[in-house]
Design a protein around this nucleic acid. Sequence first.
RNA 1: GCGAGGGUGGCGGAAUUGGCAUACGCGCUGGAUUUAGGAUCCAGUCCUUAACCGGAUGGGGGUUCAACUCCCCCCUCUCGCACCA
Length: 835
Amino acid sequence: MTADKGQAERTRVVYAVREIEERWQDYWEKQGIFRTNPDPKRKFYVLVMFFYPSGDVHMGHCRNYVIGDVLCRFRKMQGFDVLHPFGWDAFGLPAENAAIAHGNHPSYWTFDSIKTARQSLKLLGIGYDWDREVTTCLPEYYRWNQWLFIKLYERGLAYRKEASVNWCPNCQTVLANEQVKEGICYRCKATVEKRKLTQWFLRITQYAQEMLDGIDKLDKWPENVRTMQRHWIGRSDGVEVDFTLAETGEKIPVFTTRPDTLYGVTFMALAPESVLAETIARGTEHEKAVEEFRKRIILRPEIERLAATGDKEGIFTGKYAVNPLTRDRVPIYLADFVVAAYGTGMVMAVPGHDQRDFEFARKYRIPIKVVIRSPKSEVRSPNDLTEAYTDVGVMVNSGPFDGTRSDEGIEKVIAHLEQQGSGRRVVNYRLKDWLVSRQRYWGTPIPMVHCPNCGVVPVPLDQLPVLLPEDVKDYKPRGKSVLEGVESFINTTCPVCGGPARRDPDTMDTFVDSSWYHLRYTDAHNTDLPFRKSEADKWLPIDEYIGGIEHATGHLIFFRFFTRALSDLGMLSVEEPCLKLHTQGMVSLNGVTMSSSKRVGVWVGEFVPEHGADVGRLAVLFAAPPEKGMDWTDDLVTGVTRFVNRLWRLYEDNPGRVQFERPDTGRMTADEQKLYIRLNQTIAKTVADCEGFQFNTAIAAQMEFLNDLAAFGDRDSAVFKFALGQLIHLLAPFTPHLAEELWHRARPDAGSVFAERFPEADAKFLLFDEMVIPVQVDGKLRDRVSVPRTAGEEEVKAAALRSPGIEAFLAGRAVAKVVYVKGRVVNVVMTKETQ
RNA sequence: GCGAGGGUGGCGGAAUUGGCAUACGCGCUGGAUUUAGGAUCCAGUCCUUAACCGGAUGGGGGUUCAACUCCCCCCUCUCGCACCA
């Protein structure tokens, strides 16, 4: 044990904890306890989100892994064939940044981190099938990223386009929408800029509707994640209306969900990034001012743009658009509040009925028209308005539609537009195609070749993997891809014409790696395919997926998308990767979230040698329900340490008394029967709580039962001995080392405790013979009566009315009625006194 | 602004889903043991009261024999999205 450095002595584990824990960890490994059955009869796939090496392993990470391990061991003992794999999300910037800082290869740092992390997980006694370990930075893994990328490309699901994309100036790479939160890079917190670049995208939008509909079936997912995903996909139904440019008749399609306000359009607004914005003022007196505005807005960092919400800015282009319904001419503006990536990047503005348009119109003195009248308020002059009216009302100043309710008007106007050929129903999604190119080194090379003659050509599948070159002198990104500067890599020949060509210089977003790792685990060593359908079908869908809430709209979207796409490719039989998801809360230390990179945390490598794995496991499980955040405290450790110590002493004090044969339940003393019932209650509670993901209350129930056992007098009772045996099995998922030790002490010749069956409650002995019924008078607790469990309603009511404690409350008053809820409560309701 | 989820002792948290509020643990108080500290064990610990009574689940109102739980209004915290037309 570690010597204490002058601090007050704290509660310590009283037994030789490390010796015991190491013994059984070695034993499990040698016995192959957690090796997967390749032909599962009752399969159970427990998956924890894999580890992104970014430093040491802290208790925050471990909460995730411990929960998975408890489930794995619990289900295994229930007779399931469990798949519980682990791997390393090993590509990515932390490794590259470390390499830049220390001057060695990213793989050095990566494998060093993995080694430490693997050791930490083994220290905690997490039971993985290490035979199926995957490491995404190895060619054995990433070649299949490339293989899948080409398959998606062949299906039209991977494509290249020029777009205004998120650029992180610190990481020197582009980012997906999902990796930008509030205009800030999710990784380094730098302010993200916009750049116009040609990049690779995955056509996730093709699955937008399917993924949205699929959420309905994910009823075992946390509600907040489902809501977040619905919002992220963001379906909106509307119509695309063709306005035209007054001079040329060129079409300007705009998306709107409010065609009922079409008569109220008084100007048009273009996003500065839109194509039309570039050309509209060209060659006119407005050109200079418009160009200046456009460039300024485009270069404005995202964060400033977000902060500017409410303060709108724009410029008149000198041009006019024609409203297809009214033939009105309205001025066209560039406006900073129009989102380029949504709809067509151009909007019709109705200041009377849209708050943003209203603010803009007021600022630039554009007329405001009222075309929807609120049913409540009187007609007012547009000049008197203080805000836009956005609710339902009656259409006015709208020609033939006057008098129509605006919500019905939506349909009527659409029908009219469709008839006249100037509009069509469309559905818009907020979800954007997934930008997967990255200009960094430590990732999967995109397996594409750019040939001057043949264009973009995929690398033939039999030539994969395209290896990430190792002879790189400089990982430092300088605004373009690192691989661009590696001559030996970038220069190649065209697979089609054989002429000189260049490789794609970018690497893939690491979220590609994690989009299908759950499938690779089912067939981790396949050298011909990413995985066989037959193997994936054996295990999918994942039965319990456990990870952080921070992945709600990132990884968990991508991973659903991949599952659907691969299902369409015929590689899989399921459409959803996991039907049950559990997101666990963060662990903080003194109020600060644990973080490897910030070096805030309780480190497994330090904690376990001092307190033991079982104590660490109990601490994260007992502190709070899994989905809630928790603060790590020394007091928490004190509590669970006392628990394991008391357990240890209980078995030390009762050598040779542990039994596994069920006692003769026909011949029990009253005390024995009570203990036996308490045992069964504890078993039932533990099973229900493990299934319901409430490990904190499962442990509380076990603590209570330990208190019962400690207080039990007759140590030679067969029931007591049996309870000692059953408790070992109940403890096994939570404190596996202690349980295995106690099991082997009781049964030296037996195999692992994890080959035993988890206890099942004896249904005949779940309730006490006597039940204690609280008696209320007018809803207030006044007494309790003890009656036989078999007592009928009348018997219980009579006993309640006889109970001495309520006498005083009944005196001189009349009973109006007596309510009895079976087995729960009696409430004596008195007549209202008139005083 | 929109959306989701919370608010229960000194603290972390329970409460069979409308039926004994505060399980379990920490802390605290007293006692036992100990040279002493730590550890351990026993008793107690929502507030108020000598006790009974009374009061208490963010605040206010309602439904009900009965409300932490259901309904309405308000306050507050956390998270997500954020000018999405």
